[in-house]
Simulated assay, not measured.
Amino acid sequence: MDPFSITAGVVGIVAPTLHCVRRLVKDLQNIADAPDAVTALTNDLQSVGLALASVQAVTDSQWKSLGEAVTLQSKAAITSCKTSCERFKTSLDRWTRHSTDGTLSWRDRATLGVFRQGHIKSMSEQLQNCSITLTSVASIATLHSSLQQTQAAEEIKTMISTRETAVNDAIATTNDQSAEVASKLEALTLTEPDEGETETDQNSAIKQVAMEKKALGESRKVLEELLSVIQTAAVNARASQGPTVTFGNHNQGQQVGVNSGTISATFGVKG
Score class of each variant (00 low, 15 high):
residue 265 A to S: 13
residue 104 L to C: 12
residue 149 Q to T: 10
residue 89 K to M: 14
residue 93 D to C: 05
residue 118 G to P: 01
residue 201 D to I: 06
residue 57 A to Y: 04
residue 152 A to V: 01
residue 69 A to P: 00
residue 27 D to E: 14
residue 186 E to V: 07
residue 43 N to M: 07
residue 51 A to C: 07
residue 50 L to A: 15
residue 139 S to H: 04
residue 249 N to W: 01
residue 178 S to T: 11
residue 121 K to P: 00
residue 152 A to S: 06
residue 139 S to F: 01
residue 37 A to H: 06
residue 252 Q to K: 05
residue 141 A to Q: 03
residue 84 S to G: 11
residue 174 T to R: 07
residue 108 D to V: 04
residue 253 G to W: 00
residue 265 A to M: 12
residue 54 S to A: 12
residue 236 N to V: 01
residue 144 H to G: 01
residue 66 L to R: 07
residue 2 D to P: 15
residue 140 I to V: 15
residue 63 W to H: 02
residue 8 A to W: 05
residue 28 L to K: 01
residue 143 L to Q: 02
residue 2 D to A: 15
residue 168 N to P: 00
residue 23 R to W: 03
residue 109 R to K: 11
residue 59 T to L: 13
residue 257 G to I: 03
residue 207 K to S: 10
residue 30 N to E: 15
residue 43 N to V: 08
residue 223 L to S: 02
residue 179 A to F: 05
residue 38 V to W: 00
residue 175 N to K: 15
residue 168 N to C: 06
residue 166 A to W: 01
residue 201 D to K: 06
residue 208 Q to K: 05
residue 126 Q to F: 06
residue 208 Q to E: 10
residue 176 D to R: 14
residue 19 H to D: 08
residue 36 D to I: 14
residue 198 T to W: 04
residue 205 A to M: 14
residue 110 A to P: 08
residue 112 L to A: 11
residue 230 I to H: 01
residue 78 I to Y: 05
residue 45 L to H: 04
residue 99 S to N: 08
residue 49 G to H: 13
residue 76 A to D: 15
residue 9 G to L: 04
residue 206 I to V: 07
residue 209 V to D: 05
residue 160 I to D: 09
residue 152 A to H: 06
residue 66 L to A: 07
residue 133 T to C: 15
residue 44 D to E: 15
residue 243 P to A: 11
residue 102 G to D: 09
residue 17 T to P: 14
residue 107 R to C: 10
residue 264 S to R: 14
residue 234 A to I: 02
residue 221 K to P: 05
residue 76 A to N: 11
residue 248 G to P: 07
residue 50 L to K: 15
residue 243 P to H: 11
residue 149 Q to V: 03
residue 9 G to C: 04
residue 170 A to R: 04
residue 167 V to W: 07
residue 92 L to G: 15
residue 35 P to A: 03
residue 128 Q to S: 09
residue 125 E to N: 08
residue 91 S to V: 02
residue 18 L to Y: 11
residue 144 H to F: 06
residue 151 Q to N: 10
residue 68 E to I: 05
residue 177 Q to A: 15
residue 116 R to A: 12
residue 248 G to K: 08
residue 260 S to H: 15
residue 86 E to H: 11
residue 20 C to M: 10
residue 59 T to Y: 05
residue 35 P to S: 03
residue 97 R to Y: 13
residue 26 K to T: 12
residue 221 K to G: 07
residue 72 L to Y: 08
residue 34 A to L: 02
residue 195 E to T: 13
residue 120 I to V: 11
